[in-house]
Computed example of a mutant assay.
Amino acid sequence: MTPTAASLLIGQVGHTRRLPRHHSLRYRVASVLVDIDGPEAPRSEGWVFGFNRPGLVSLYTKDHGSDKSPLRSWVEQRLKEAGSTSPIGRIQLLAAPRILGLAFNPVSVFFAHNPQGDLAGLIFEVSNFHGGRCAYAFPIEDRADHEDAQYLETSKRFFVSPFNPVDGHYRFRLSRTDDQYRLSIQLIRDGDVVLSAAHTARLKPLQRRALQSAAWLVATNTTRIFFGILWEALRLRLKGLATFAPRRGTSDTLPGRH
């Protein structure tokens, strides 16, 4: 899983709730995969795409990580805290871009590579509707299967959905080639899979032509994600699912804290 050129990802996200009621949803989504800095960082494409500047579609590194440090330092620190000892070279971020200045990223993924280009670490940055963010970091350098799908597990420690308490653990499976991407996440509690989610997409070069060819999908991306989640939450409430409140004073409700 080596670095790739800046890419536009067109695909879909699906959720399936298994307990205590069965419920599923699907929606199309557009994402971008870019280097966060250095000579490989993407070039802005006029008014169509802006990197750290305004554009119809834009991506700002300040929307991720912590306000207290540069994004590269934040990634390196999160991986170091998780046990990584590898020096970090290129860092790529996969996220939903801003559309007309607005964005919501339920899950963003950082791919950290060592100077030789091998995958050295992964960070899943999870956001909720309360403005809170949490990072789940995983060193990869001791694995022999850098190019294969990555299977990772960790305890859940962050409030995401009002229909799930903060307990259980996550199981991640991530694979990426030069033209395909798949991330699946399972929430497991007491040995049962409560919820599963998957993001599948195809990669295209992040160029003006690709953005224009997917103009309608890209233009409605933020609205689709935001209101799609709210609509499905209403449907779950009508099915009688109990709700849980976020933990006040924690990263669940403190924007940008990790």
Results as ranks from 00 to 15, higher is better:
232 E>D: 12
229 I>C: 10
152 L>N: 02
150 Q>G: 06
197 A>I: 01
223 T>V: 15
165 P>L: 09
184 S>K: 10
230 L>Y: 14
131 G>Y: 14
213 S>D: 15
193 V>S: 02
133 R>C: 10
219 A>N: 01
183 L>R: 04
221 N>H: 05
163 F>G: 01
177 T>N: 05
151 Y>M: 04
145 D>G: 02
231 W>P: 01
178 D>S: 15
188 I>M: 01
206 L>A: 11
230 L>M: 11
178 D>H: 10
231 W>S: 08
171 R>W: 02
232 E>F: 10
143 R>N: 12
219 A>T: 02
186 Q>K: 02
181 Y>E: 04
184 S>H: 06
137 A>T: 04
162 P>C: 11
159 F>L: 09
203 L>A: 13
233 A>S: 14
226 F>C: 13
216 W>D: 00
175 S>Q: 09
133 R>I: 14
182 R>N: 11
137 A>G: 06
174 L>S: 04
232 E>W: 02
203 L>S: 08
175 S>V: 10
218 V>G: 00
165 P>S: 09
233 A>N: 03
186 Q>I: 00
159 F>I: 12
179 D>H: 12
130 H>Q: 08
172 F>S: 06
181 Y>L: 14
153 E>R: 02
175 S>N: 06
208 R>T: 00
208 R>A: 07
213 S>C: 11
177 T>I: 07
214 A>T: 04
205 P>E: 10
210 A>N: 04
227 F>R: 03
202 R>K: 15
224 R>T: 15
138 F>R: 01
221 N>F: 06
144 A>V: 07
151 Y>E: 04
176 R>L: 12
216 W>N: 00
229 I>A: 15
201 A>M: 11
135 A>W: 06
165 P>W: 09
134 C>H: 15
226 F>G: 13
146 H>S: 13
160 V>L: 14
155 S>V: 07
176 R>G: 08
226 F>M: 14
189 R>Y: 00
170 Y>D: 01
191 G>Q: 05
160 V>P: 13
217 L>C: 06
212 Q>V: 11
143 R>C: 14
205 P>K: 09
129 F>G: 11
141 E>H: 04
211 L>Q: 00
200 T>K: 12
129 F>C: 12
198 A>M: 08
231 W>K: 05
209 R>S: 05
225 I>G: 10
139 P>I: 13
189 R>C: 01
186 Q>Y: 02
143 R>W: 10
181 Y>W: 15
130 H>R: 03
179 D>Q: 14
180 Q>R: 15
228 G>C: 10
150 Q>M: 11
214 A>F: 08
232 E>N: 07
202 R>L: 15
198 A>F: 05
175 S>R: 08
131 G>T: 13
178 D>N: 13
169 H>I: 01
145 D>S: 05
